[in-house]
C-alpha cells in the first residue's frame, strides 16, 4: 500500500496538455504533405514512379498527392529535383470527404466544421467500437495509446465500448481483408442507427500498401459510408484524437 503511494508520487502527474495546447511531436515527424506545383516540371515522373502506394498522380497543372494513400515514408521528397513535395509538421490531417485528402498545394488542411447532427445525436460524448479488418496492429496500438494516462481521451468523453450495441461509431483499421468483410458488415449492422464510420489509416481509407492485393477489398470505399478520414500509416495519436474532437464539434484551443 505504501509502496503504491510512494510510486504514485515518484511517477507524478503525466497527462499531456493536448488538445488544449499543440502536441509535442518528434523533430523528424512527417505531417501534412505540402506541394509547390509552380515548380513542378511536367516532363518528370520521378516521384510518381517512386511512390510505393501510387499516391502521387499527375494533373494538367502539376502533381496531386493523395494523403489517403500516402504512407508518409518521405521517399519522394529527396528524389524531386525541384523540391516540389515537402512534409510539414502539421499533425491535423483529417477530412470529412475523400476529395479533401487530395493535396495540390500547401494550404492548411480543411478545418473540420462541426456537423450539427453529430452534436445533436451524441451530445458531448462519443462511444467507439473498433474493428480491425486486416490491420497490421500499428493503428490499433496507437488508438489504444489514447486510453493511456498520457492522452486520456476519456476526459474528453471519448470511450471505447465492448459491444457494437453501445456504440455511436465504428473506427475501422486495415484494408478490409476478404476474411473480415462479413464480420465487419455484421458489426456495422449491430450498431444502432445512425452509425458513424471513421476510417483510420491509409489501409482503411484506400487499401494503402495492400490496395492491389487480391485478398483484400482495398479499404472501406464501397463497403461502408465513411464519415471521417484519418490519414497516416499509422496516424499519430495526436492526429487521431484531434480528428475525433473536431468531428464531435468540441472546442479545442
Amino acid at each position: 500500500m505504501w509502496s503504491v503511494i510512494k510510486a504514485r508520487l515518484k511517477q507524478g502527474f503525466r497527462t499531456g496538455t493536448f488538445p488544449h495546447t499543440r502536441p509535442v511531436l518528434p523533430d523528424r515527424f512527417q505531417g501534412l504533405p505540402c506541394l509547390d506545383n509552380t515548380r513542378c516540371r511536367t516532363d518528370c515522373r520521378v516521384c510518381i514512379e517512386a511512390c510505393p502506394t501510387n499516391a502521387i498522380g499527375r494533373e494538367k497543372d502539376g502533381i496531386v498527392l493523395d494523403s489517403g494513400k500516402c504512407l508518409f515514408c518521405g521517399k519522394c521528397v529527396p528524389l524531386c529535383p525541384e523540391g516540389v513535395i515537402r512534409f510539414s509538421r502539421e499533425h491535423d490531417l483529417a477530412a470529412f470527404s475523400r476529395q479533401e485528402l487530395l493535396r495540390k498545394d500547401s494550404s492548411a488542411s480543411h478545418e473540420l466544421q462541426p456537423r450539427a447532427e453529430i452534436r445533436k445525436l451524441c451530445g458531448k460524448s462519443l462511444k467507439i467500437r473498433q474493428v480491425s479488418a486486416g490491420g497490421c496492429g500499428a493503428c490499433e496500438l496507437d488508438f489504444n495509446v489514447l486510453n493511456t494516462l498520457a492522452w486520456d481521451m476519456a476526459r474528453l468523453h471519448i470511450q471505447v465500448v465492448a459491444s457494437p450495441r453501445h456504440a455511436d461509431c465504428l473506427l475501422v483499421t486495415g484494408p478490409v481483408s476478404k476474411n473480415m468483410l462479413l464480420a465487419l458488415q455484421k458489426t456495422y449492422a449491430a450498431v444502432p442507427e445512425p452509425c458513424f464510420v471513421i476510417a483510420c489509416g491509409a489501409c482503411a481509407i484506400s487499401g494503402g500498401i495492400h490496395a492491389e492485393s487480391p485478398e483484400v477489398c482495398g479499404g472501406l470505399e464501397g463497403i461502408l459510408p465513411v464519415d471521417l478520414y484519418v490519414p497516416g500509416c499509422p496516424p499519430h495519436p495526436a492526429t487521431l484524437l484531434e480528428a475525433m474532437i473536431r468531428f464531435m464539434g468540441l472546442k479545442l484551443r
Binding site: 479488418a133 486486416g134 481483408s177 476478404k178 476474411n179 485478398e215
Partner: peptide, 11 residues
Amino acid sequence: LGYQHRGIEKR
C-alpha cells in the same frame, strides 16, 4: 485465425 490475411508472401 486467418481474418487478417492480406496475401503478403505472394505479393
